[in-house]
Design a protein around this nucleic acid. Structure first.
Ligand code: SF4
Length: 337
DNA sequence: ATCCAGGTAC
DNA sequence: GTACCTGGAT
């Protein structure tokens, strides 16, 4: 076996993570966990993983669920295309694989929301297939160990080749977790090289390739908080593509003076209250300022009936799937009416 | 307020 | 290349 892999495996037995809740063989569990772990840290994932798995304990249960139920259990975790893709992929799996699963990384990667690293991690963990991964942790380790500069396509190809060369034919599951843990626990942004099992062969010179950060433009929206003593707060479903796709949110407009028309289009009449203090929310690619505007005295009996894209929410329970800042905002409004 | 952690789809 | 999220640390 590759010397590098031997050392990483030996380190992992003593210092790696062995009790994460998804460390089982079940392909469904590993798939769910790997998708949740995309762009998301372990501590953020754990509570969502457990709730989600309780609600949808099998591929079939997930496939038979509504998208609303799936999004409700994903709400707050972010990157909601993951939930929509997971749901769609569950339906593909039940249709094409029955109660079975793909056995190759290529077949997994053909499913929506499963890219090369996720696919490789799934087959390595569930079936012991020696498929290389290159997530952020592995990439950091290998780019330093082999002194691969740059973040361009050529550097990426080189790193994939190194990942493939290091991945052992046996113990692929343990090695995959081991190299991820090494990146997460030792070869962090500021590496702890004194604790690293492969320091002797490492070519790291102390400088990573620079990351380019784009400036984040500002956007602003106004959101109507339409309250009714009996029915709660009115929510509308967001379009299935774009930010917060498919989640429930508040009626909104880009211009404040357009908000009454948005409310009127829902068949409602009420007084526009004074705007509340804006909420600031940062996305990867822009910053959003949300100004809530309470709408009071909505006439009883008026308003569109609840339908596929409009609902009243009284609070309590899991509730509909809402973006994190909207959830926080509503918690305030529903606590202090 | 700003930085930081983290893959896939188009 | 650009779109897509959140919570925690500083
Ligand atoms: S020696 Fe340091 S830089 Fe090299 S792989 Fe280990 S932790 Fe990373």
């Amino acid at each position: 076996m590759d010397e590098f892999a031997l050392k990483v495996l030996a380190w992992y037995r003593r210092h790696g993570r062995h009790d994460l809740p998804w460390q089982v063989r079940d392909p469904y569990v590993r798939w769910l966990a790997e998708v949740m772990l995309q762009q998301t840290t372990v501590t953020a994932v754990i509570p969502y993983f457990q709730r989600f798995l309780t609600a949808f304990p099998s591929v079939r249960a997930l496939a038979e669920a509504s998208q609303d139920a799936v999004l409700a259990h994903w709400a707050g975790l972010g990157y909601y295309a993951r939930a929509r893709n997971l749901h769609a992929a569950a339906r593909v799996l039940t249709e094409h694989y029955g109660n079975g699963f793909p056995r190759t990384a290529e077949a997994w990667a053909a499913l929506p929301g499963v890219g090369p690293s996720t696919a490789a991690a799934i087959v390595a963990f569930a079936f012991g297939v020696p498929a290389p991964i290159l997530d952020a942790n592995v990439r950091r380790v290998l780019s330093r160990y082999h002194a691969v500069g740059g973040r361009d396509a050529r550097a990426l190809r080189t790193l994939w080749a190194h990942a493939r060369d290091h991945t052992p034919a046996h113990e692929a599951a343990a090695y995959t977790q081991a190299i991820m843990d090494l990146g997460a626990l030792v070869c962090r942004k500021t590496p702890d090289c004194a604790a690293c099992p492969v320091a002797a062969g490492c070519a790291f010179e102390g400088e990573d390739a620079p990351v380019t950060r784009r400036p984040r433009p500002e956007r602003a929206v106004f959101m109507a908080v339409i309250r009714d003593p009996d029915r709660g707060v009115l929510l509308v479903r967001r379009p299935s593509h774009g930010v917060w796709g498919g989640l429930w949110s508040l009626p909104e407009s880009v211009e404040q003076h357009d908000l009454p028309a948005v409310v009127a289009a829902l068949g409602l009449e009420g007084r526009m209250g004074a705007p509340c203090a804006p909420i600031h929310h940062a996305f990867t690619h822009f910053r959003l300022s949300i100004t809530p505007i309470p709408v009071e005295g909505v006439s009883r009996g008026l308003g569109v009936a609840e339908c596929h894209d409009v609902m009243w929410y009284k609070g309590g329970g899991l509730g509909p799937g809402m973006p994190a800042p909207i959830r926080r905002l509503l918690n305030q409004f529903l606590e202090v009416p």
